[in-house]
Design a protein around this nucleic acid. Structure first.
Lengths: 199, 199
DNA sequence: ACGGTCTTGTGAAACGAGGCACAAGGTGGC
DNA sequence: GCCACCTTGTGCCTCGTTTCACAAGACCGT
Protein backbone atom coordinates (compact mmCIF):
# COMPACT_ATOMS: atom_id res chain seq x y z
CA UNK A 1 0.00 0.00 0.00
CA UNK A 2 2.99 2.22 0.45
CA UNK A 3 3.81 1.94 -3.21
CA UNK A 4 1.24 4.67 -3.77
CA UNK A 5 3.73 7.05 -2.24
CA UNK A 6 6.35 6.16 -4.81
CA UNK A 7 3.88 6.82 -7.57
CA UNK A 8 2.99 10.21 -6.08
CA UNK A 9 6.66 11.14 -6.05
CA UNK A 10 6.79 10.37 -9.76
CA UNK A 11 3.67 12.40 -10.42
CA UNK A 12 5.03 15.34 -8.50
CA UNK A 13 8.22 15.21 -10.52
CA UNK A 14 6.11 15.22 -13.67
CA UNK A 15 4.49 18.38 -12.43
CA UNK A 16 0.99 16.97 -11.99
CA UNK A 17 -0.99 19.12 -9.58
CA UNK A 18 -3.90 16.70 -9.19
CA UNK A 19 -4.65 13.03 -9.83
CA UNK A 20 -7.81 10.93 -9.99
CA UNK A 21 -8.28 7.49 -8.50
CA UNK A 22 -8.84 6.21 -12.02
CA UNK A 23 -5.46 7.48 -13.17
CA UNK A 24 -3.77 5.81 -10.19
CA UNK A 25 -5.64 2.58 -10.85
CA UNK A 26 -4.37 2.48 -14.42
CA UNK A 27 -0.79 2.74 -13.20
CA UNK A 28 -1.19 -0.24 -10.88
CA UNK A 29 -3.49 -2.50 -12.88
CA UNK A 30 -6.15 -2.09 -10.15
CA UNK A 31 -9.72 -0.88 -9.94
CA UNK A 32 -10.36 2.72 -8.99
CA UNK A 33 -12.64 1.74 -6.10
CA UNK A 34 -9.77 -0.08 -4.43
CA UNK A 35 -7.65 3.04 -4.45
CA UNK A 36 -10.45 5.15 -3.00
CA UNK A 37 -11.16 2.66 -0.23
CA UNK A 38 -7.51 2.47 0.70
CA UNK A 39 -7.13 6.21 0.89
CA UNK A 40 -10.45 6.80 2.63
CA UNK A 41 -9.39 4.52 5.49
CA UNK A 42 -7.26 7.35 6.87
CA UNK A 43 -9.51 10.33 6.20
CA UNK A 44 -11.08 12.18 3.33
CA UNK A 45 -8.21 13.51 1.27
CA UNK A 46 -9.95 13.80 -2.09
CA UNK A 47 -12.13 16.48 -3.57
CA UNK A 48 -15.19 15.38 -5.49
CA UNK A 49 -15.10 16.39 -9.08
CA UNK A 50 -11.36 17.03 -8.95
CA UNK A 51 -9.49 14.07 -7.54
CA UNK A 52 -6.59 14.20 -5.10
CA UNK A 53 -4.13 17.04 -4.74
CA UNK A 54 -0.79 15.36 -5.34
CA UNK A 55 1.21 17.52 -2.95
CA UNK A 56 -1.39 17.25 -0.19
CA UNK A 57 -1.89 13.50 -0.52
CA UNK A 58 1.83 12.95 -0.56
CA UNK A 59 2.25 14.81 2.73
CA UNK A 60 -0.58 12.87 4.31
CA UNK A 61 0.82 9.52 3.17
CA UNK A 62 4.29 10.23 4.50
CA UNK A 63 2.71 11.17 7.82
CA UNK A 64 0.62 7.98 7.92
CA UNK A 65 3.62 5.83 7.06
CA UNK A 66 5.52 7.40 9.94
CA UNK A 67 8.11 9.01 7.70
CA UNK A 68 7.68 12.57 8.92
CA UNK A 69 10.90 12.39 10.83
CA UNK A 70 13.56 10.46 8.93
CA UNK A 71 13.64 7.16 10.76
CA UNK A 72 17.08 5.89 11.71
CA UNK A 73 18.08 2.42 10.52
CA UNK A 74 21.02 0.27 11.55
CA UNK A 75 22.44 -2.66 9.63
CA UNK A 76 23.90 -5.63 11.50
CA UNK A 77 26.62 -7.40 9.56
CA UNK A 78 29.11 -5.54 7.34
CA UNK A 79 29.68 -8.28 4.79
CA UNK A 80 28.94 -7.93 1.11
CA UNK A 81 25.21 -7.87 1.73
CA UNK A 82 25.35 -5.32 4.51
CA UNK A 83 27.58 -3.04 2.46
CA UNK A 84 25.34 -3.36 -0.55
CA UNK A 85 22.24 -2.52 1.47
CA UNK A 86 23.95 0.46 3.12
CA UNK A 87 24.69 1.98 -0.27
CA UNK A 88 21.50 0.71 -1.88
CA UNK A 89 19.63 3.72 -3.19
CA UNK A 90 19.16 7.23 -1.92
CA UNK A 91 17.17 6.52 1.19
CA UNK A 92 18.63 9.43 2.94
CA UNK A 93 16.54 11.70 0.81
CA UNK A 94 13.26 9.98 1.40
CA UNK A 95 12.38 9.02 4.93
CA UNK A 96 15.21 6.76 6.07
CA UNK A 97 18.69 7.37 7.32
CA UNK A 98 21.21 4.57 7.56
CA UNK A 99 22.99 5.37 10.80
CA UNK A 100 25.65 2.69 10.97
CA UNK A 101 26.80 -0.81 10.09
CA UNK A 102 27.74 -3.13 12.95
CA UNK A 103 30.22 -5.97 12.86
CA UNK A 104 32.48 -8.01 15.13
CA UNK A 105 35.42 -8.12 12.76
CA UNK A 106 38.16 -5.77 13.99
CA UNK A 107 39.48 -5.27 10.49
CA UNK A 108 36.14 -3.83 9.38
CA UNK A 109 35.46 -1.68 12.44
CA UNK A 110 36.43 1.93 11.83
CA UNK A 111 36.10 1.78 8.06
CA UNK A 112 33.26 3.36 6.10
CA UNK A 113 31.19 2.04 3.21
CA UNK A 114 31.47 3.59 -0.21
CA UNK A 115 28.40 5.66 0.60
CA UNK A 116 29.97 6.92 3.82
CA UNK A 117 28.21 4.73 6.39
CA UNK A 118 30.60 3.93 9.28
CA UNK A 119 31.25 0.38 10.49
CA UNK A 120 31.00 0.24 14.28
CA UNK A 121 31.82 -2.40 16.89
CA UNK A 122 28.74 -4.51 17.47
CA UNK A 123 29.11 -4.01 21.22
CA UNK A 124 28.39 -0.33 20.82
CA UNK A 125 25.02 -1.07 19.21
CA UNK A 126 22.86 -0.34 22.27
CA UNK A 127 24.57 2.99 22.91
CA UNK A 128 24.41 4.13 19.29
CA UNK A 129 20.86 2.90 18.74
CA UNK A 130 19.56 4.75 21.77
CA UNK A 131 21.52 7.93 21.10
CA UNK A 132 20.26 8.14 17.52
CA UNK A 133 16.79 6.94 18.50
CA UNK A 134 16.86 4.06 16.02
CA UNK A 135 13.89 1.70 15.95
CA UNK A 136 14.59 -0.36 12.82
CA UNK A 137 17.37 -2.88 12.26
CA UNK A 138 18.34 -4.84 9.15
CA UNK A 139 19.94 -8.24 9.73
CA UNK A 140 22.57 -9.05 7.08
CA UNK A 141 24.51 -11.74 8.92
CA UNK A 142 25.06 -15.45 8.23
CA UNK A 143 22.24 -17.77 9.22
CA UNK A 144 24.00 -19.12 12.29
CA UNK A 145 24.46 -15.63 13.71
CA UNK A 146 20.93 -14.41 13.02
CA UNK A 147 19.37 -15.28 16.36
CA UNK A 148 22.21 -13.74 18.32
CA UNK A 149 22.06 -10.59 16.19
CA UNK A 150 18.34 -10.37 16.78
CA UNK A 151 18.67 -10.70 20.54
CA UNK A 152 21.31 -8.02 20.56
CA UNK A 153 19.13 -5.69 18.54
CA UNK A 154 16.20 -6.37 20.85
CA UNK A 155 18.34 -5.43 23.83
CA UNK A 156 19.32 -2.25 22.01
CA UNK A 157 15.67 -1.18 21.95
CA UNK A 158 14.93 -2.04 18.31
CA UNK A 159 11.21 -2.36 17.56
CA UNK A 160 11.20 -3.65 13.98
CA UNK A 161 13.55 -6.00 12.16
CA UNK A 162 14.12 -6.84 8.52
CA UNK A 163 15.85 -10.21 8.33
CA UNK A 164 17.84 -11.22 5.27
CA UNK A 165 19.39 -14.29 6.86
CA UNK A 166 17.94 -17.64 5.74
CA UNK A 167 16.96 -18.59 9.27
CA UNK A 168 13.78 -18.70 11.30
CA UNK A 169 14.10 -16.31 14.21
CA UNK A 170 12.34 -16.64 17.52
CA UNK A 171 10.92 -13.19 18.12
CA UNK A 172 9.54 -11.64 21.25
CA UNK A 173 6.38 -9.62 21.96
CA UNK A 174 6.43 -6.01 20.83
CA UNK A 175 8.92 -6.53 18.04
CA UNK A 176 7.84 -6.82 14.42
CA UNK A 177 9.99 -9.05 12.27
CA UNK A 178 9.87 -9.44 8.51
CA UNK A 179 11.87 -12.00 6.63
CA UNK A 180 13.27 -11.55 3.14
CA UNK A 181 14.44 -15.03 2.28
CA UNK A 182 15.91 -15.25 -1.18
CA UNK A 183 15.37 -18.97 -1.43
CA UNK A 184 11.65 -18.59 -0.83
CA UNK A 185 11.47 -15.89 -3.47
CA UNK A 186 13.19 -18.14 -5.98
CA UNK A 187 10.93 -21.04 -5.09
CA UNK A 188 7.87 -18.89 -5.71
CA UNK A 189 9.21 -17.96 -9.12
CA UNK A 190 9.98 -21.59 -9.85
CA UNK A 191 6.46 -22.50 -8.83
CA UNK A 192 4.97 -19.99 -11.24
CA UNK A 193 7.24 -21.29 -13.97
CA UNK A 194 6.19 -24.86 -13.29
CA UNK A 195 2.53 -23.84 -13.52
CA UNK A 196 3.07 -22.11 -16.84
CA UNK A 197 5.03 -25.02 -18.23
CA UNK A 198 2.27 -27.47 -17.31
CA UNK A 199 -0.39 -25.29 -18.92
CA UNK B 1 3.23 -22.12 0.68
CA UNK B 2 6.69 -23.28 -0.22
CA UNK B 3 7.86 -22.94 3.36
CA UNK B 4 6.32 -26.36 3.98
CA UNK B 5 9.18 -27.81 2.03
CA UNK B 6 11.73 -26.25 4.36
CA UNK B 7 9.92 -27.80 7.29
CA UNK B 8 9.90 -31.21 5.65
CA UNK B 9 13.64 -30.99 5.17
CA UNK B 10 13.99 -30.39 8.89
CA UNK B 11 11.72 -33.32 9.69
CA UNK B 12 13.65 -35.61 7.43
CA UNK B 13 16.87 -34.60 9.12
CA UNK B 14 15.27 -35.41 12.44
CA UNK B 15 14.50 -38.87 11.13
CA UNK B 16 10.72 -38.58 11.17
CA UNK B 17 9.17 -41.12 8.83
CA UNK B 18 5.66 -39.69 8.92
CA UNK B 19 3.94 -36.47 9.94
CA UNK B 20 0.33 -35.45 10.58
CA UNK B 21 -1.29 -32.22 9.45
CA UNK B 22 -1.77 -31.38 13.12
CA UNK B 23 1.95 -31.62 13.79
CA UNK B 24 2.70 -29.38 10.80
CA UNK B 25 0.05 -26.91 11.93
CA UNK B 26 1.68 -26.58 15.33
CA UNK B 27 4.99 -25.67 13.73
CA UNK B 28 3.45 -22.85 11.73
CA UNK B 29 0.85 -21.51 14.15
CA UNK B 30 -1.85 -22.56 11.70
CA UNK B 31 -4.89 -24.81 11.77
CA UNK B 32 -4.60 -28.37 10.56
CA UNK B 33 -7.40 -27.95 8.04
CA UNK B 34 -5.43 -25.26 6.25
CA UNK B 35 -2.49 -27.59 5.76
CA UNK B 36 -4.68 -30.36 4.43
CA UNK B 37 -6.43 -27.99 1.99
CA UNK B 38 -3.13 -26.70 0.70
CA UNK B 39 -1.71 -30.16 0.15
CA UNK B 40 -4.89 -31.64 -1.28
CA UNK B 41 -4.89 -29.01 -4.03
CA UNK B 42 -2.23 -30.99 -5.85
CA UNK B 43 -3.40 -34.52 -5.25
CA UNK B 44 -4.01 -36.93 -2.40
CA UNK B 45 -0.64 -37.42 -0.75
CA UNK B 46 -1.82 -38.39 2.72
CA UNK B 47 -2.92 -41.68 4.14
CA UNK B 48 -5.94 -41.65 6.41
CA UNK B 49 -5.16 -42.80 9.86
CA UNK B 50 -1.43 -42.26 9.36
CA UNK B 51 -0.67 -38.81 8.04
CA UNK B 52 1.87 -37.91 5.36
CA UNK B 53 4.99 -39.87 4.54
CA UNK B 54 7.74 -37.29 4.92
CA UNK B 55 9.96 -38.64 2.18
CA UNK B 56 7.10 -39.03 -0.26
CA UNK B 57 5.55 -35.64 0.42
CA UNK B 58 8.90 -33.98 0.12
CA UNK B 59 9.46 -35.48 -3.30
CA UNK B 60 6.01 -34.43 -4.43
CA UNK B 61 6.48 -30.88 -3.19
CA UNK B 62 9.81 -30.45 -4.91
CA UNK B 63 8.20 -31.72 -8.10
CA UNK B 64 5.28 -29.29 -7.77
CA UNK B 65 7.61 -26.39 -7.11
CA UNK B 66 9.50 -27.27 -10.23
CA UNK B 67 12.70 -28.11 -8.40
CA UNK B 68 13.14 -31.62 -9.75
CA UNK B 69 15.95 -30.55 -11.95
CA UNK B 70 18.09 -27.97 -10.18
CA UNK B 71 17.01 -24.79 -11.90
CA UNK B 72 19.80 -22.61 -13.16
CA UNK B 73 19.91 -19.00 -12.01
CA UNK B 74 21.97 -16.11 -13.31
CA UNK B 75 22.71 -12.87 -11.50
CA UNK B 76 23.04 -9.65 -13.46
CA UNK B 77 25.36 -7.14 -11.80
CA UNK B 78 28.50 -8.20 -9.95
CA UNK B 79 28.56 -5.38 -7.41
CA UNK B 80 28.38 -5.88 -3.67
CA UNK B 81 24.79 -7.01 -3.87
CA UNK B 82 25.32 -9.45 -6.70
CA UNK B 83 28.32 -10.97 -4.96
CA UNK B 84 26.44 -11.28 -1.70
CA UNK B 85 23.51 -12.98 -3.39
CA UNK B 86 25.80 -15.36 -5.27
CA UNK B 87 27.33 -16.58 -2.02
CA UNK B 88 24.11 -16.25 -0.02
CA UNK B 89 23.32 -19.66 1.40
CA UNK B 90 23.77 -23.12 0.07
CA UNK B 91 21.30 -23.06 -2.76
CA UNK B 92 23.30 -25.39 -4.77
CA UNK B 93 22.25 -28.21 -2.51
CA UNK B 94 18.55 -27.52 -2.64
CA UNK B 95 17.02 -26.90 -6.00
CA UNK B 96 18.91 -23.93 -7.40
CA UNK B 97 22.26 -23.55 -9.03
CA UNK B 98 23.84 -20.13 -9.48
CA UNK B 99 25.39 -20.43 -12.92
CA UNK B 100 27.14 -17.10 -13.33
CA UNK B 101 27.35 -13.42 -12.51
CA UNK B 102 27.24 -10.96 -15.40
CA UNK B 103 28.82 -7.53 -15.52
CA UNK B 104 30.12 -4.95 -17.98
CA UNK B 105 33.18 -3.98 -15.95
CA UNK B 106 36.32 -5.49 -17.56
CA UNK B 107 38.12 -5.56 -14.22
CA UNK B 108 35.46 -7.86 -12.79
CA UNK B 109 35.06 -10.15 -15.79
CA UNK B 110 37.08 -13.32 -15.38
CA UNK B 111 37.16 -13.23 -11.59
CA UNK B 112 35.12 -15.52 -9.34
CA UNK B 113 33.11 -14.83 -6.22
CA UNK B 114 34.22 -16.20 -2.88
CA UNK B 115 31.78 -19.07 -3.38
CA UNK B 116 33.28 -19.84 -6.78
CA UNK B 117 30.69 -18.29 -9.11
CA UNK B 118 32.40 -16.86 -12.23
CA UNK B 119 31.87 -13.30 -13.44
CA UNK B 120 31.17 -13.26 -17.15
CA UNK B 121 30.88 -10.54 -19.78
CA UNK B 122 27.29 -9.39 -19.95
CA UNK B 123 27.36 -9.80 -23.75
CA UNK B 124 27.75 -13.54 -23.35
CA UNK B 125 24.53 -13.76 -21.35
CA UNK B 126 22.33 -15.12 -24.17
CA UNK B 127 24.83 -17.84 -25.06
CA UNK B 128 25.40 -18.95 -21.47
CA UNK B 129 21.74 -18.76 -20.51
CA UNK B 130 20.67 -20.93 -23.41
CA UNK B 131 23.52 -23.41 -23.04
CA UNK B 132 22.78 -23.95 -19.34
CA UNK B 133 19.02 -23.79 -19.91
CA UNK B 134 18.57 -20.98 -17.38
CA UNK B 135 15.09 -19.57 -16.91
CA UNK B 136 15.52 -17.35 -13.82
CA UNK B 137 17.54 -14.14 -13.54
CA UNK B 138 18.25 -11.97 -10.52
CA UNK B 139 18.75 -8.25 -11.19
CA UNK B 140 21.32 -6.70 -8.85
CA UNK B 141 22.19 -3.61 -10.84
CA UNK B 142 21.74 0.12 -10.13
CA UNK B 143 18.28 1.54 -10.73
CA UNK B 144 19.21 3.29 -13.95
CA UNK B 145 20.48 0.07 -15.52
CA UNK B 146 17.56 -2.10 -14.44
CA UNK B 147 15.43 -1.74 -17.56
CA UNK B 148 18.36 -2.42 -19.87
CA UNK B 149 19.35 -5.46 -17.81
CA UNK B 150 15.81 -6.75 -17.98
CA UNK B 151 15.59 -6.35 -21.74
CA UNK B 152 18.85 -8.18 -22.12
CA UNK B 153 17.67 -11.04 -19.92
CA UNK B 154 14.43 -11.23 -21.86
CA UNK B 155 16.38 -11.56 -25.10
CA UNK B 156 18.43 -14.31 -23.47
CA UNK B 157 15.28 -16.37 -23.00
CA UNK B 158 14.75 -15.72 -19.30
CA UNK B 159 11.20 -16.48 -18.12
CA UNK B 160 11.24 -15.19 -14.52
CA UNK B 161 13.02 -12.24 -12.93
CA UNK B 162 13.73 -11.25 -9.36
CA UNK B 163 14.46 -7.53 -9.30
CA UNK B 164 16.41 -5.96 -6.45
CA UNK B 165 16.84 -2.59 -8.15
CA UNK B 166 14.64 0.20 -6.80
CA UNK B 167 13.04 0.79 -10.18
CA UNK B 168 9.74 -0.06 -11.81
CA UNK B 169 10.37 -2.26 -14.81
CA UNK B 170 8.22 -2.47 -17.89
CA UNK B 171 7.77 -6.18 -18.39
CA UNK B 172 6.53 -8.11 -21.39
CA UNK B 173 4.04 -10.95 -21.75
CA UNK B 174 5.24 -14.38 -20.72
CA UNK B 175 7.79 -13.13 -18.22
CA UNK B 176 7.08 -13.12 -14.50
CA UNK B 177 8.75 -10.36 -12.54
CA UNK B 178 8.94 -9.99 -8.79
CA UNK B 179 10.35 -6.93 -7.09
CA UNK B 180 12.22 -6.95 -3.81
CA UNK B 181 12.46 -3.27 -3.04
CA UNK B 182 14.20 -2.56 0.24
CA UNK B 183 12.61 0.83 0.55
CA UNK B 184 9.12 -0.62 0.37
CA UNK B 185 10.03 -3.19 3.01
CA UNK B 186 11.29 -0.46 5.31
CA UNK B 187 8.20 1.62 4.70
CA UNK B 188 5.98 -1.28 5.65
CA UNK B 189 7.89 -1.69 8.89
CA UNK B 190 7.66 2.02 9.53
CA UNK B 191 3.92 1.86 8.92
CA UNK B 192 3.50 -0.90 11.49
CA UNK B 193 5.60 1.08 13.93
CA UNK B 194 3.49 4.19 13.38
CA UNK B 195 0.32 2.18 14.04
CA UNK B 196 1.70 0.76 17.27
CA UNK B 197 2.89 4.16 18.43
CA UNK B 198 -0.52 5.71 17.86
CA UNK B 199 -2.25 2.93 19.79
C1' DA C 1 -27.77 30.72 -12.47
C1' DC C 2 -27.95 26.27 -14.25
C1' DG C 3 -27.46 21.87 -16.67
C1' DG C 4 -23.61 18.74 -18.04
C1' DT C 5 -19.75 16.32 -16.74
C1' DC C 6 -16.28 14.86 -13.63
C1' DT C 7 -14.84 12.47 -9.34
C1' DT C 8 -15.16 11.01 -4.55
C1' DG C 9 -17.05 8.26 -0.75
C1' DT C 10 -19.86 4.44 0.49
C1' DG C 11 -23.59 0.90 0.91
C1' DA C 12 -24.59 -3.63 -1.37
C1' DA C 13 -23.17 -7.61 -3.86
C1' DA C 14 -19.74 -11.06 -5.32
C1' DC C 15 -15.71 -13.45 -4.35
C1' DG C 16 -12.17 -16.02 -1.98
C1' DA C 17 -9.48 -17.50 1.95
C1' DG C 18 -9.61 -19.62 6.42
C1' DG C 19 -11.90 -22.59 10.00
C1' DC C 20 -15.25 -26.32 11.65
C1' DA C 21 -17.21 -30.75 11.61
C1' DC C 22 -17.94 -35.07 9.86
C1' DA C 23 -17.89 -39.16 6.67
C1' DA C 24 -14.45 -42.23 4.59
C1' DG C 25 -10.56 -44.89 5.01
C1' DG C 26 -6.75 -47.11 7.39
C1' DT C 27 -4.09 -49.19 11.75
C1' DG C 28 -3.38 -51.99 15.76
C1' DG C 29 -4.82 -54.86 19.59
C1' DC C 30 -7.42 -58.74 21.00
C1' DG D 1 -13.01 -60.73 12.56
C1' DC D 2 -14.12 -56.88 15.15
C1' DC D 3 -13.77 -52.70 17.62
C1' DA D 4 -11.59 -48.48 19.33
C1' DC D 5 -8.74 -44.98 17.59
C1' DC D 6 -6.32 -41.87 14.24
C1' DT D 7 -5.97 -38.90 10.32
C1' DT D 8 -7.23 -37.32 5.75
C1' DG D 9 -10.34 -35.13 2.39
C1' DT D 10 -14.25 -32.24 1.88
C1' DG D 11 -18.87 -29.82 2.25
C1' DC D 12 -20.59 -25.87 4.86
C1' DC D 13 -20.09 -21.59 7.15
C1' DT D 14 -17.95 -17.20 8.40
C1' DC D 15 -15.44 -13.31 7.59
C1' DG D 16 -12.65 -10.02 5.36
C1' DT D 17 -11.50 -8.08 0.80
C1' DT D 18 -12.44 -6.71 -3.83
C1' DT D 19 -15.81 -5.02 -7.09
C1' DC D 20 -19.95 -2.63 -8.57
C1' DA D 21 -23.25 1.00 -8.63
C1' DC D 22 -24.92 5.22 -7.22
C1' DA D 23 -25.88 9.51 -4.44
C1' DA D 24 -23.43 13.77 -3.11
C1' DG D 25 -20.33 17.38 -4.12
C1' DA D 26 -17.49 20.43 -7.27
C1' DC D 27 -16.01 22.62 -11.60
C1' DC D 28 -17.15 24.72 -16.36
C1' DG D 29 -19.34 26.83 -20.29
C1' DT D 30 -23.05 29.49 -21.45
Amino acid sequence: MSIYLRCLDDLQREGARTVSSQALADRFHLKSAQIRKDLARFGEFGIRGIGYLVEDLRRNLTRILGLTRNRGVIIVGAGNLGMALADYGGFNREGFRIVALFDRDRRKIGTVSRGGVPVVDVRRMPAVARRENVSIAVLAVPADAAQRAFDLAARAGIKAVLNFAPARIKTRPGITIKGVDLKIQLENLSFHLARQERA
